[in-house]
Amino acid sequence: MGAEFVQFSLTPVLIGVLSAIACALPGNFLILRRQALIGDAISHVVLPGIVVAFLLTGMISAVPMLLGAAGAALVAVVLIEAVKRLGNIEPGAAMGAIFTSMFAAGVLILEQTDTSSVHLDVEHALMGNLESLVWLRAEGWHSLLDPSMLATLPGELSRIAAVCAFVVVATLMFWRWLKIATFDEGFAQALGIPSTALGLGLVVVAAIAAVAAFDAVGSIIVIAMFICPPAAARLMTNRLGHQVVWSAVFATLSAVLGYVLAGYGPFWFGFEGAVSAAGMIATVSGIILAGACVFGPHRSRVGVAQQEAR
């Protein structure tokens, strides 16, 4: 684990871990609120936002793309609410209609316009390009202590680190509100907790996490991290606090294991080359969820209740 690791693997692994945690934390509450699909919706609608931002500015720089993506996420949330209320349609159906339409529109625009000259294509949107986020200028672990070297770190790393810190602080700060309003919204409102604003705030935080992660690792990993680590964590414990910690552990594990397996896995099995790290991270998170379904101590809560009743 020397200079080469710092140069080629440290930053992608860190970006993967931070993206996974930033998405998994709000994912816990989205799942408990039966809104898991919102994460899916956000990560899909980010694509047209990015494409439109690119077409308007003509450049592939981070700030306009992040703004475009965030704008698209907000447009999607408003449209979903509108379809739900005006059409009196079930929330899952409203989300499905909006996010598939917006994603499809993004793919169409992407195909019809000349974006071939830049690295913006459907594959990039889905998979991101984690492997390319390397720290070429680094010379070894000591580079981490050299400010002039740190300045050459990929911009994605500082962005996702800031977003991850923001998500952690927001979760801790509004913990009590999130807990009460997620469990019993009517009671929360009777206490004077602004549960509607809180619900919107949760979606906005999830959107920010999704946009930042999307930029680095693509939409597949975003969808997987919103759902798989929290869902697996729910099967490990019956306490909300423990569940959120477990989800961060599973997110980290998925990112590290997924990155390593993508890089070395094919070689271990006698194949040449490597597979997509983002795809492998999402796959590992799915395998962890499957494992939790089979081995998790609280996997069949109905069964537990029946046992106790006997």
Binding site: R176, D184, G186
Partner: peptide, 29 residues
């Protein structure tokens, strides 16, 4: 509220739920 209005599968304990009633005393933080 009607007890059927909430999800009783929520990951929390009896004591946690009762402590929610103390919210106006302890506030957000």
């Amino acid at each position: 509220p009607q007890s059927a209005s909430v999800d009783w599968d929520f990951p929390t304990t009896v004591m946690d739920v009762v402590q929610m009633g103390l919210y106006r005393k302890v506030g957000l933080l």
